[in-house]
């Protein structure tokens, strides 16, 4: 299953709930405001790092660039585009954590 999260972890517990129930190795994709959690050095880094232990973590490049975060992400987070997003959906059933 592909877990899609769109909320900033600083505002809402969507990412936390997602990590709590997601099965091991299930990919997590951060889109929209959720990419704020992937910024290096922020308070959410611990949460993202814990996710990286059990899951591949992706973040949408358009949302990262729009927020001025390009090149400043927690190591291990993979940056992908919309075409890669489609590929992930093709490979896994999606669940969106709004």
């Amino acid at each position: 299953m592909l877990h899609i999260v769109n909320k900033s972890p600083y505002m809402k517990s969507s990412l936390e709930s997602c990590i709590r129930v997601a099965q091991k190795d299930a990919p997590i994709l951060l889109i929209e405001d959720a990419v704020l959690g992937a910024a290096a050095g922020g308070g959410a880094e611990t949460l993202v790092k814990s996710a990286l232990k059990d899951h591949p973590v992706y973040a949408l490049s358009a949302d990262i660039s729009a927020r001025g975060l390009a090149g400043n992400l927690t190591p291990g987070v993979k940056v992908i585009d919309y075409a890669d997003f489609v590929d992930l959906v093709e490979q896994h059933k999606p669940m969106t954590w709004l």
Partner: peptide
């Protein structure tokens, strides 16, 4: 529990939030 919820979700074809 969390693991149980995760397992049931995995068994679905479609998840509507």
């Amino acid at each position: 529990d969390s693991a149980g919820i995760g397992k049931i979700m995995e068994e679905q074809d479609v998840l509507l939030p």
